[in-house]
Amino acid sequence: MSLFGAVIALGVLALIFGVILGFAAVKFRVESDPIVDQIDEILPQTQCGQCGYPGCRPYAQAIADGDDINKCPPGGEATIKQLADLMGVEPKPLDDAHGEEDVKKVAIIREDECIGCTKCIQACPVDAILGAAKQMHTVIEHECTGCDLCVEPCPVDCIDMVAVKPKPETWQWDLDTVKENIKANSIPVKVVE
């Protein structure tokens, strides 16, 4: 008899809590950003397409649909870790079929070689190249995401990807780099008059 009492009591309790929880789930529902937006926030927005999708947003959509999270070389380990946290999966190493994590770069056009063909302008996903037909082109450096997409279309190979130089205000206080910083910019021989 007491067994039934216990079962009934527990059953009733479970029912009550179930109702409360169900009610709370509806009543206090927190509207969060759709998952695609959240993924898109994490991706580095280089729009380079190295993942195999035409831009970051399409890749975000693909991840939401179940694609791997390790196809973004510009984002590298940090992005994979954040994506893993968001998606609740294990982080995995970068899939090197899509490229390797590299230092940050920007495109520079060797302007005297440019023929003004506008091919790179059309390739640039963020409109960071300025110029018009038969006019020399140039890269707006702070808008360039370093995606590499303008390099191949150039018929005269006049676009270089160069590593972004650290500046004093963006330096990360890594004291081990100080000696190299000094060496890298060798001091010209003093001319004493």
Binding site: P168, L175, N181, N185
Partner: peptide, 14 residues
């Protein structure tokens, strides 16, 4: 008028 190491902890040129 050229880049020279500047008086900053980083030793980076400016």
């Amino acid at each position: 008028i050229e880049e020279r190491p500047t008086a900053h902890a980083s030793g980076l040129p400016e």
